[in-house]
Every structure is written in C-alpha cells, then in structure tokens.
Design a protein around this nucleic acid. Structure first.
Length: 472
RNA sequence: GACCCCUUCGUCUAGUCAGGCCUAGGACUCCAGAUUUUCAUUCUGGCAACACGGGUUCGAAUCCCGUAGGGGUCACCA
C-alpha cells in the first residue's frame, strides 16, 4: 500500500497555538510531505466549556502563518459524540467494558490509599465483576474498559524504541463519563482509527497515555498506528513549557517580528538535525525529515538562537516581501503618514536595510526615515550631534550638493570626500552630521546610498530642515 | 511516592545503532582582531562539554551494570 501515510495534529483549543504545539504540527506536516501522505487537523474540543470559536481560530491562524496547511476539512472531535458512544456501547455489550458506579469520594479514597501504598493502579476494579443488580439507584455509571490483568503492554515507538509496562500498573480507564460524554482516551483512539491515521506523532507527555490507548485498540481489535512520541520542548529553566511558564503562542513571536520561515527552521532543529546543517530550506526539510531521526532528549527554547536564525532569514529575504511586512507597521506607528515616494525608497534601500535587522520590528524602525515625509524627527543622539558646529558643515555640504548634476552614489562620495580634504576633516566628522540630518539618527545604512535613494530635492530639503532646526 | 523517558560546550546539536578516523566537530551567545563614514553584515581567532563510579576490551563519548541529576505521567482534563 503506497502512500498510506496519514498524520494528524490534534490540539485542544486553549486560546492559542503554543510553540510546542507548533513544533508537533511541523513534524507531522513534514513527515506527511516527506512521504507524500496526508496531514490532517482535528480539534480536540470534547470539553465544550473550554473551547471557543476564538480559540479554534487562533489555531487555524497560527498554522496558516507557519504555512502548515492541512488536508481535508478540520475535524471537530465534539461532532463525533455519537460514534464515540456507540463504540463504548459495543465494548459494553461484548463484555469488554463495564459500568462502574463509584462516587467521586470513593475514588478519591481509593487513590489516596493506593498512593500511600506506593501502587500505580489507582482504581481497584471493584465493579469489574460485580453483579449489575447491585447497582445503586439514581446513580449514572461511567463505563470502564476491562483491561488485561496480567502480562504487559508494549509500544514499539519509532522515537522512544520499545517501551513496555506491566499491565498490573494500568487500571481500568473510564471510556464514557456519567453524562455520556467520551473521555479523551476513547475519543483519540476512535478518531485516529476512523481517520485512518497511520502515524501518531505527538509530544511524549502522551507516552504513558499510549499504553492505555493501546489497550483500547486491542479490545476493539483494531490495528495500531505507528507511534512516535517526540520529546517535549522545555523553557530556559528546563521545565515543560506551559502557559504558567510563559510559553507564548506563535502569534506572539509573529508580533515580535519573527518570520515564519525562521520559526519553522528553528523549531525543526530542536530535537532533529541533519549533520551540521543549521539553515534548512523547506524543500530540504521535506526531503530530509524522518521521524525516526528525532532525538529522545528534551530541548530548551532559546530566544537568542531563534533571533539569530531570524536575522539570517531577513537578510536573505525578498525585498518586496520585506517591504510588504514593514509597511503596515510603519503606517500604524505613524498613522498612515507616508511620503509619496516612500514605498519606492523602501524598496531601493531594502537590501542594505535588511542586513541590519534581527526582526521585522527593528527593520521597520530602521526603515522609517525612508518612508516618512519631511520634516523628519531627530532622536536624542542625532540632536546632540547636530548641535554646535555641525550646522556649518551642513551648510557647506548643501552648497556643494547644489551644483552636483549626476546624483549618484559614486559622485556623492567624491563630493563629500573632496569636502573632507578641503577642510582637513576626517570623513566621519562630516558623514555623521550628514547622516543625522538626513535620517534623524546616528545609525543607518551607508550614507551615500541613502543620499542617492532619497534624491537631490529631498536631501537638500532635509538639510534645510536640519539647519533651520539646529541654528541657535 | 509509583511507573516511564532522558543525560556531549551556558544553549541547540554532530559523533553512539555497526567501539579505533574524536588531542570530541558545527551553530547560537560571549571575548579579541580584520574590513569600515555610523551601525550591521562578512571574515579570522579564542573561551567552553562526553553527569559520576565501576566493568568489558589492546582500545569506550560510543557496549554492560550501578549511582546521581533532570523531565514526563499518574482525573468522569485534553
């Protein structure tokens, strides 16, 4: 059976797509692409109280931003309630499951005793073989799976290897709650089976759940999917990333100016590698990625490395793409006040600009002087630089520029250099005030490039503005 | 606590399956230097690790055992 690989990402709608979930989704997506299979999305919204449309949208948006498109319609687990119930009923009528009438208090006590005695098996199976006529009236039972008492349950995990646990450790799990809703354990198994999921790739916090799920598969006499439990992503402190730990949603990184390509690349390198390769294009990722190569150790999330990868992607990104990303930011910051030639200037200056930014926010900030109309504002350092004798320098430059016919970088450089020689000043002494006058800042791309892109009229105008603003 | 998983520079990792090519390689960070009109890029160099203890072997980061540390899971949550 060629092309039988079907993977899935099954997040619960908690309000955002967090970074660990994004990595899980990425690995599932890559594996599907690598094998020419399908990647499906299922929303685990069994708990209706906790899932909202907004939360579901956040997942869609997060995945879309990362470019992790899914095949077919996203499936809502909740919509499959009837099927889950039917499966539980089958199990019940086949004698593979039973009704349990324990009260929450009873269970609580049982658990305490079991823990005190150091046992893992928390439920003692007291209703397992009890006569149904003993059932108390007025109590809705839960349905529990009759799990094997002896032997062991084994998982051949692609990442973790063979993991086995004694069945004595596993108690009879609840399949259907008293209100008739399925538990997560039942729902995943039924859904994964019905969706024909071939590979279950998920965080290894599910590894111990997998044993219980295997028991459900076995009771149903269904084929097992291939399991791949990938190590968790940890925070800088080494603990599991969680909301409490300040784990952020992918949209938070987006608003920090991280590029989705960089995010994917960074996430991919956490727990997986291809020799010494650091920058891996999506094409290569698809070609090279295989779940079996995922490591078993958890890794920590490192913002500095992400930032560095992000810088690389910005430096190598397409000019128009970058302009389209920063334009809305600049317009938002300055209320749409854009110079007529603003966009052209941004495009012309972008190659130099992109080498100087670690993220899109910074890029937008550094590019602003191109986009805004006169008069520009000066930051504190620029203001300081323009005080005193700088005005005289600007005036001299202004008249030198005035006569320049061929307004190109090389010519401009000659003019400024000549001026430096004539006044026996160091180039820096002249270039810095010029930079401050023209960009409003002390840091920018090469000054001659800027002069050319801005154009003669604009430069002369900005010099006038600066002279006027700083003449005392 | 019980069960399961993990352990190479501060971090991500190569090397571990098929022991010698490893005086352990790369990347990020940091430091120094070169380039330079500022900043950045780029380039060069540097600091820095096989958790520990036993074995097996001519030889172990690699195999075995133990210890320590870290993580995960133990719900009528997902």
């Amino acid at each position: 059976m060629p092309n039988s690989v079907i993977t899935r990402f099954a997040p619960s709608p908690t309000g955002f797509l967090h970074i660990g979930g994004a990595r899980t989704a990425l690995f599932n997506w890559l594996y599907a692409k690598h094998t020419g299979g399908k990647f499906l999305l299922r929303i685990e919204d069994t708990d209706q109280k906790r899932s909202t449309d907004d939360a579901i949208d956040a997942i869609y948006e997060g995945l879309s931003w990362l470019g992790l498109d899914w095949d077919d319609e996203a499936l809502s687990q909740h919509a499959r309630l009837k099927r889950h119930q039917a499966v539980a009923q089958d199990l019940l009528s086949n004698g593979l499951a039973y009704k349990c009438y324990c009260s929450p208090e009873e269970l609580q006590d049982m658990r305490q005793i079991a823990k005190a005695e150091g046992r893992t098996r928390l439920y003692d199976g007291r209703w397992r073989d009890r006569d149904p006529s003993d059932a108390p009236t007025g109590v809705e039972p839960v349905i529990r799976l009759k799990t094997p008492l002896q032997g062991e349950t084994v998982i051949g995990d692609v990442i973790q290897g063979e993991v086995r646990v004694s069945n004595e450790q596993l108690d009879d799990i609840v399949l259907l709650r008293a209100d008739g809703s399925p538990t997560y354990m039942l729902a995943v198994v039924v859904d994964d089976h019905d969706m024909k999921i071939s590979h279950v790739i998920r965080g290894d916090d599910h590894l111990t759940n997998a044993f219980r799920q295997v028991q459900i598969y076995n009771a149903l006499n269904w084929n097992l999917p291939v399991f791949a439990h990938m190590p968790l992503l940890h925070g800088t402190d080494g603990a599991k990333l969680s909301k409490r730990h300040g784990a952020l949603g992918v949209e938070a990184y987006r608003s920090m100016g991280i590029l989705p390509e960089a995010m994917n690349n960074y996430l991919l390198r956490l727990g997986w590698s291809h020799g010494d390769d650091e920058i891996i294009s999506q094409d290569h990722a698809i070609r090279w990625f295989d779940v079996k190569d995922v490591g078993r150790a958890a890794s920590r999330f490192d913002m500095e490395k992400l930032t560095s990868v992000n810088g690389y992607y910005i430096r190598h990104a397409d000019v128009d793409y970058l302009v389209s990303l920063i334009l809305p930011i600049i317009q938002k910051n300055f209320k749409g006040k854009l110079a007529d030639q603003g966009v052209d200037r941004l495009k012309n200056g972008m190659v130099s600009l992109r080498e100087r930014a670690k993220n899109i926010l910074e890029l937008a900030e550094n590019a602003t002087f191109y986009a805004l109309p006169r008069p520009i504002s000066y930051d504190a350092k620029a203001t300081k630089l323009l005080a005193g004798s700088a005005v005289a320098v600007l005036e001299e430059l202004r008249s030198a520029f005035l006569n320049l016919q061929d307004w190109v970088q090389t010519e401009l450089e000659i003019v400024v250099n000549d001026h430096a020689l004539a006044t026996e000043a160091k180039l820096g002494k002249i270039a810095q005030p010029l930079r401050a006058a023209v960009t409003g800042r002390t840091v920018s791309p090469g000054i001659f490039e800027i002069l050319e892109i801005l154009g003669k009229d604009e430069v002369l105008g900005r010099l006038d503005d600066a002279i006027e603003a700083h003449t005392t």
